[in-house]
Design a protein around this nucleic acid. Structure first.
Lengths: 204, 204
DNA sequence: GGAAAAAGTTTCCTATAGGGAACACAGCGT
DNA sequence: ACGCTGTGTTCCCTATAGGAAACTTTTTCC
């Protein structure tokens, strides 16, 4: 296995071609198979015809919204992924790689943040690793809050997550939490060492 | 103030209810008015007929999925809105904790996915840990693609990320990558052991 | 292997989606 | 009043979605 040269950050070629609706059928078939249903079963559950479903899966028809809606429910498909090919995303056709430890750093008194991508403007999510410095805190005072959603995953150390309206939550490596970042929140490392967490933040 | 939920898992009503015939038209008309478009303008922008749009708004037809998709794009309607009424801003004031290893599992031949939250409907991002099973692959065949953006962080193992239009990218623990998930992509573990990665996916 | 059952596809027909164009109905200015 | 323009609705026709059943393929079981 030959070594593959590392490269990049940012730019890639445009994905000029638009993935057409051919994908819809495949997605539905995959979803059905995933649930282990036959055409008959799925069709019945969705109150549509067996043949109709077959045609949809083979992209031989342009199903009505109503039909798709019913299928979505029975197949428990996540809605937005059905709406392929809209893409107003800034990252279209891009890949942005960050080698461990090489992200841009930003330090405060309690945190050391390492940004895990090279630029932010084209991206909707913001991924970074934070080192939470060990310190003694009795009273938690310094709430952070910013409109949006946030996902946090503990890489190492032990920490306590403070969240408004909730009891403090003690977390260890591998634990994770998803929360409304509009709530006040903040972390304290409770281990002797610093704690490291991966954060992914989504505005809005 | 809301009583604080004592347990940390499972929140959000799972209303997969869809707008029935009556509502769909109204939602679309409202959205169009909101943007200050006339039937003519909206129809043209969505590449559909003026009369068709009129009928849809008056619930005099059962539009095809394709038509609705186009309308959604031009009217910039939030997708789930069309399927789920009620419960907007899903995670507001919520926290959803997952203890390590206790997420819901979903297994395929190449992956073992562990979902890092208890439910998805209220959330915009999807966090999960995937174990990429070690296997021998010469020809990479099975592209995954789904509209949106994705962030991936390698927890352990060595793997190669395949991305359309890019050279394969070899990654190790701590490395991460942010990419357009609409590009075909997929991973292969190149270590003897399985590789583990943290994924955060954002649709749309 | 062969028969039977199950799963999936194709055929056929009817109801209707979708678009063009005619129609209706405002406002607005002269 | 009168056109005139811009907006939304209705009519009409063609293409096709959707379902029942016929047909084909795959799987299962003896």
């Amino acid at each position: 296995m030959e070594p593959i040269p590392s490269e990049e950050t940012g730019l890639g070629p445009d994905t000029a071609e638009a993935p057409d609706g051919e994908i819809l059928g495949k997605m539905i078939r995959d979803a059905r198979k995933e649930k282990g249903l036959t055409l008959e079963e799925a069709a019945k559950a969705a109150a549509i015809g067996r043949s109709t479903l077959s045609k949809i899966e083979n992209n031989q028809t342009r199903p009505s919204f109503e039909i798709i809606r019913r299928l979505m429910q029975t197949l428990e498909l996540e809605t937005p992924q059905l709406f392929v090919q809209s893409s107003q995303s800034g990252v279209t056709g891009r890949r942005d790689f960050t080698r461990t430890g090489e992200g841009e750093h930003k330090e405060t008194t309690t945190y050391d943040h390492e940004l895990l991508c090279s630029e932010l403007t084209s991206k909707r999510m913001v991924p970074y690793i934070s080192t939470i410095k060990a310190r003694d805190v009795t009273e938690f005072d310094n709430w952070v809050r910013h409109q949006g959603e946030e996902f946090m995953f503990v890489l190492s150390g032990e920490l306590i997550l403070y969240t408004e309206h909730y009891r403090p939550l003690r977390m260890g490596p591998g634990d994770s939490v998803y929360y409304d970042s509009g709530m006040g929140h903040g972390c304290v490392s409770v281990s002797k060492e610093d704690a490291r967490v991966l954060w992914v933040s989504l505005e809005g």
